[in-house]
Design a protein around this nucleic acid. Structure first.
Lengths: 249, 249
DNA sequence: TATTTATTTGTACAAATGTATAATAAATTT
DNA sequence: AAATTTATTATACATTTGTACAAATAAATA
């Protein structure tokens, strides 16, 4: 099997095939194989955190799996191993927090419905219950929620984002829309939906925290407390909804 | 990428192995060199139109220069020849229409200032003058304006978009903000800016035309006339601004 | 204890991508 | 008329990128 043709050994197929094995560069600190103590859940969370941040900052195409792996301090293949293709990773990033957000909103809506007098939930309550879980999570929650809010804002008007949002958030939106229509019986559905869309857009724009408001204002403006922004937003959007009723507003 | 002539296209082993240098495949229909009649302005516009559409649909990183070239029916290098690197092409796409939008808005503001009684422009006028050029261009203009609106909506909450918007739209925004503050003297600047941001976000969300409103409503909902959407938006945002004044709204 | 599974490191690769170079020919200028 | 500029076709290339494969080893299971 082994031919003895001295010189050609340098570039023979044989060397080409077995050159890699002899390099035992295993002395690079970390060793392969299953690590000793930690469970893989921690690795998964680290990858999701890194992906969330990179997708928010660079976009779906701008964030590479290598960036994600490096930011999570794992090898490239760990990403694919845990989450499969890139689009699945992306969807996992979204759904990790969308389930929490959906539960908060639906719980608030259930409570509001129980407390409603005459079967009608006040508009301000609807606005607040939909907006505040997101705004407060983005404003006072941990850094992960802030990043998630930026990512959702970024997704808002893109085709990919529209598809993802539909899958994760449309069901809740429809429940709230039912109540809005009940509270605004003389407003056509198209207007209610347009108001709801305006509210969501403003909410996302606020939480995306792009820095534009600070840039448009006087330099001395300090960073606002999230609760102040929330109250302003609630008042603004509530008044907007109410104005849809009377034609001679 | 593939030439549309027939015969010489088949890849023989010969061509695969050694033929690439000597192949003078200049028989592919179009000939190199400066074309006969048309001016290059038409080519530039075609490239900008294609880039606008692809950036809107795929995003900055998702749209490739090859996609742009193919959509504009030009060779790859024509893109780089006319616009240089990718980021310059992107900025050119934005500025082509931002100068028009800015002029429309500033002209409207000048007229409103001249017509103002007591030096104060009504809030509804400010809202309408800022919003309507964009909404009407996106709704009733040619397809290019619709695409541009989708692109701007997509940019709204991204870091790249924030930088671009700052460069092309912040000056006008500041002029309008001055008037808003004058019309709302008892509202703190941070709230005025938050309201303005909400208005812009709603405007972009409406014009991005993602299809979400249609999906959230009853299937029978027909496509709205842009003028109807505009009136609803103006009323909604105007009421929002006005609500910022009285604390007991 | 032996075998299998889970999770990691390390490497490879084909396709895609931004950019650059060469060649060519019409238009413009000198 | 000659030289230069302009605008195009055609090709090349070094990186980047998503995905896959191979090897290694701790944990789990039989």
């Amino acid at each position: 099997m082994q031919s003895i043709d001295g010189l050609e050994n340098e570039i023979s197929l044989e060397t080409a095939f077995e050159a890699t094995p002899p390099t035992p560069k295993r002395q690079t600190g970390k060793k392969p194989g299953r690590p000793k103590g930690k469970s893989s859940d921690q690795t998964r969370e680290r990858i999701l955190d890194a992906a969330e941040r990179l997708f928010a900052n660079e976009g779906y195409d701008g964030a590479t799996l290598r960036d994600v792996a490096a930011a999570a301090d794992v090898q490239l293949h760990a990403v694919g191993y845990h989450f499969g293709p890139k689009d699945i990773l992306f969807d996992t990033v979204i759904s990790r927090r969308s389930v929490i957000m959906t539960e908060l909103r639906m719980n608030a809506l259930s409570a509001a419905r129980r407390a409603a007098v005459g079967g009608v939930v006040p508009i301000e309550t609807l606005v607040r219950d939909y907006i505040s879980p997101f705004v407060l999570s983005a404003g006072e929650g941990d850094r992960g929620w802030r990043t998630y809010a930026a990512l959702m804002g970024r997704l808002a008007n893109s085709p990919l984002g529209t598809e993802i949002i539909a899958r994760h958030y449309d069901a809740t939106a429809r429940e709230y829309l039912k109540e809005f229509s009940r509270a605004l019986p003389d407003v056509i559905e198209a207007d209610v939906i347009e108001g709801f869309s305006a509210m969501v857009a403003a909410m996302l724009g606020l939480c995306a925290d792009t820095g534009r408001p600070a840039r448009l204002g006087q330099p001395k403006i300090a960073h606002r407390k999230p609760s102040d922004s929330l109250e302003t937003l609630v008042r603004f959007q509530t008044a907007g909804f109410k104005s849809l009723g009377n034609v001679d507003g």
